[in-house]
Amino acid sequence: MKVWFYRLGSPKWFYDIAGRCLPWLAWSALLLIAIGTVWGLVFAPADYQQGNSFRIMYIHVPTAFLAQSCYLMMAVAAVISLVWKMKLCDLVIVAAAPLGAAFTFLALFTGAVWGKPTWGTWWVWDARLTAMLILLFLYFGVIALQHAIQDKVASARATAVLILVGVVNIPIIKYSVEWWNTLHQPPSFKLTEKPAMPSEMWLPLLVMVLGFYCFFAAVLFMRTRNEILDRERRTKWVRELVQKVSSR
């Protein structure tokens, strides 16, 4: 267990393993998202209240899931980074923050565009919407802090602390629709119950969510590999790798 933990912390080991997983993740993402999109756009029946605008759900829900999952993953990485000083975790955080910000933006954007025909307005200061906006600013804060501090070690520590403080926002997002009864509808999915929607509607959503998770993992691996290449450029293994690639 301990050996495994230390190997995982080794950037070279991660670089190799991530490189081997990448094609699988990328192709599954492409396949799942393609199937989910066609299924959701063409075959799923229109909603009896919202008509066809409900099809936005098939990208709104996965991006909103990922916006929060990405933050939780960064929080786990931040704990490991603070307790065990694992450098790989700092690199994962650097790689994940812009991606998380992108997914949060997409969730907010698709939500606003969906809100226009459904609620009659692009934006309201609803509890969930506000909490998601705070999440976006948290991501911006993390990115800004990384660039503001030159010293890599100090930058990683400050970022990890900021991430852990901001993690309080995640349960607020999750329970906001239950605590405050406002415009945003309650969750479409619960792990332990059958969904309220008919299966023709939520199965494509499940496929889309899986596809988006694969996509996130693939891009996160690519970005972390780039961070490793940059940060470890003076090490022997990166030099050898660069020579091998450039001699091809």
Binding site: G51, R55, I56, L106, V219
Partner: peptide, 27 residues
């Protein structure tokens, strides 16, 4: 899309653009 075409295609378009960019840029 039953009159909601603008909204649906705007969402799918922007998301597709974001996904393609976030995949191509790291490469």
């Amino acid at each position: 899309m039953g009159g909601h075409g603008l909204y649906v295609w705007l969402c799918y378009g922007v998301t597709l653009l974001a996904l393609v960019l976030s995949f191509v840029l790291p490469r």
